[in-house]
Design a protein around this nucleic acid. Sequence first.
DNA 1: CGAATTGTTGATGACCCTCAAAAACAGTGG
DNA 2: CCACTGTTTTTGAGGGTCATCAACAATTCG
Lengths: 279, 279
Amino acid sequence: MDVSSRAEACVETPRSLAPAGADPPMVASRFRSRRSVQAVDVVVRRLGGLASLSEREVDLVRRLSGDGEVHAANSVVLAAETEPSGARFIISGWACRYRILPDGRRQVFCFLLPGDGIALGGPRDAGALASVGAVTELQTVDGEAVRRAAANRKEHPGLAQSLYMAVRAEEALLLNQLVRLGRQTAYERAAHLLLELHERLALVGLTQGYSFPLPVTQEVLADILGLSVVHVNRTLQQLKREKLIEVRGGEAKLLAPQVLTALSNYRSRDLAGGKGGEP
Amino acid sequence: MDVSSRAEACVETPRSLAPAGADPPMVASRFRSRRSVQAVDVVVRRLGGLASLSEREVDLVRRLSGDGEVHAANSVVLAAETEPSGARFIISGWACRYRILPDGRRQVFCFLLPGDGIALGGPRDAGALASVGAVTELQTVDGEAVRRAAANRKEHPGLAQSLYMAVRAEEALLLNQLVRLGRQTAYERAAHLLLELHERLALVGLTQGYSFPLPVTQEVLADILGLSVVHVNRTLQQLKREKLIEVRGGEAKLLAPQVLTALSNYRSRDLAGGKGGEP
DNA sequence: CGAATTGTTGATGACCCTCAAAAACAGTGG
DNA sequence: CCACTGTTTTTGAGGGTCATCAACAATTCG
């Protein structure tokens, strides 16, 4: 992948790129193109939110921008049961982990958002257990350098901690998802998922107040919520009718976050990590 | 306090149960017997099944038997939101990871069987994200020694690999569970779960052909299957009526494993690991 | 053996699915 | 710019799955 195609992709998925008005640290202007340096910033924000990174570690992450790839919307990024590929980070766009039953039923396990990693657990991660698909057009970069660096805890304690917390955050997502599917009504599930997406996107600066991009069809929502498309539609309508949310044109807005939180028993704080953790 | 009384507790004091402050004390008594040297063998079998262990590593695991604890059935082993404890291994009995909603609804994420670890991911593991409860009387041993040894990959490559695979196997469980809850009917879920339990118990030698212990009430099954107790009862009856399973007196038997596998789209091989994997 | 837990059964209705078709929308090419 | 096509959203109708409530039978256990 060359730089120009990445740049194009950036333009084509404007929604996924952070306006980033909040976080302009002195960006070491390396000899990389300015555009791509900004692009990986979302990874820096994500990992930096999970643990404190040294300047050297931040630089190491920034250097990832070299090896980017663009995946078309609806393409398979990582097929289950095939040779595992290395770790990658998502720069822009949404992906999802999922499994498909022989009869076509699909369950999406979780969304993967900008800044999130794919197969962080190592070469054999992800692929064997679930497929990863691009929900929108997707920009990723090779994250093996970071993963290997993080394996050396002495050298890169911050990165080690970050990746550890990233894996934990993903488990937190799965547990949330299990509660939704096992014990919540459609109405609660939808509210809960929207709150979770808002929280995650806020962590990487992709929200504007309570508005955030929701670039997925109702069919995808159905597959993550464990519902039929029709029922997702009706459930969202109910939430809109009650003035709790707005959803249109790939954008969502939480009109009454506290009400949503209460009715869906949403608990935040599971995803950020709070920078504590494992030795 | 025990978990089974949660329903009443919620009726009487609906609000006061949920907050983390009201977490029950952990009842556990210590044991230290010669007999337990044999007992930890189940851990050796489990870890040895996930990766090849050197004799030294096996010895290291066997030495765990020193520091055992017994947890009463229905007691809380690891409460969510509290100080994390160290890694432990289950010697006998069944436990489960779960979360309870403020209104009393409970979702069990997975069972923890003999040989399985608790909080293997490190001190902060498990506890923060889910509680662990003893389903039956439970015998555990401190696994910190093994966990720390495994952290040194050079010294103990087999153990490192084993624990890595154990964590992956647990993720596989969660993903299976997500498919069950999100996209399968009660009938499929029950069959799928029974197959999974059989496979897991077989890995540690606790099955006899297609018979295996199932020391749980239908209420617990309901909480893991995301169903009501009544519906679990009817679903099991249907499976019995169709001569696919037998369940009585804490024992289950799969009468037609292939039929069950087909009807529930069960895929094995996710849990064992096959001794391949991460560096 | 009585008390409590667990399992079983029936009745009723809510929730959610399926089928089917129309309406809104997005992209394409004339 | 507007028909044209395919996708996505929306609406309606009807039915199946599963929850809830309530009671009773069967077990387990002290």
